[in-house]
Design a protein around this nucleic acid. Sequence first.
DNA 1: CTTGAAATAATAGAGAA
DNA 2: TTCTCTATTATTTCAAG
Lengths: 156, 156
Amino acid sequence: MKSDNEKVKIDGIDKKILRFLMDDARKPVLEIARNIGISGAAIHQRLRKLEASGLLAGSKFIINPKIMGYTTMAYIGIYLDKAMSNPIAVKQLEKIPEVLECHYTTGNWSILIKVLCRDNEHLMQVLNKEIQQIEGVSRTETFISLAQQIDRQITI
Amino acid sequence: MKSDNEKVKIDGIDKKILRFLMDDARKPVLEIARNIGISGAAIHQRLRKLEASGLLAGSKFIINPKIMGYTTMAYIGIYLDKAMSNPIAVKQLEKIPEVLECHYTTGNWSILIKVLCRDNEHLMQVLNKEIQQIEGVSRTETFISLAQQIDRQITI
DNA sequence: CTTGAAATAATAGAGAA
DNA sequence: TTCTCTATTATTTCAAG
């Protein structure tokens, strides 16, 4: 694994491989091989290299939260008291399963989080009974995502 | 595929399978089978059911943008003129590859987007030469993510 | 859900362009 | 180096119980 900020050079074949797998992590290597016209072993070797470079950070099954009854997504900007250190707050946020992302941000807030809840009532409970209860949280601003209209990774 | 808001019932075995695959989409079904003590074919059958239910929305290879030289992530709140319809703006945003997410939100802004850029200068260019140039965009507020401290999917 | 068989894929090693 | 070819092992997938 290279140091996290070191750029890696990838060629057109690498890009083709990555585009296939970013779209479907379970696509068989041999199928990709047939598509782009080199041997499966070559793809395999390239994938090992890409993995060693740190560029490949694993793979995930994507599940549709709506089917599980989770239909309310929101961003919440959190103001922390000066005395409250960010890492301690993050540790508390980690314990709340509805918190999917947490960013240490410039601007108004100390922290910006993304939460996923079943409905607005559930969101209200998470806000009042979980997030507001964290010591050092002084105020929050909530933005409900009525629709997520774009969702993608970096373009290769 | 069930209608998008219909809940699906999954049992403990489904949950175990999903937890494995949400963490590593390429984990062999037989390996999961050995882990949880049922046959590979049973897992296969369950996965087909979960896929048919719409709960499984595919799989993705995750790539580490830092290794590609993309180190600046930011959220941008966008104010739209009343005359500007959201779908038209979204169509323009889709053309900007640095825009990874786009949410139609309640609250101050009409739109909240997530962008990924190489550095702050690149972010500035995307802001000034791409986003601000979209017709109907009156003002923006940018929040740079200094660190993403949590990043996960819904807990099963 | 299981078994068992057939088709397909992953992977390692040797050697050529 | 990066590829191809080949052989071995492992996995996927299907049909039947």
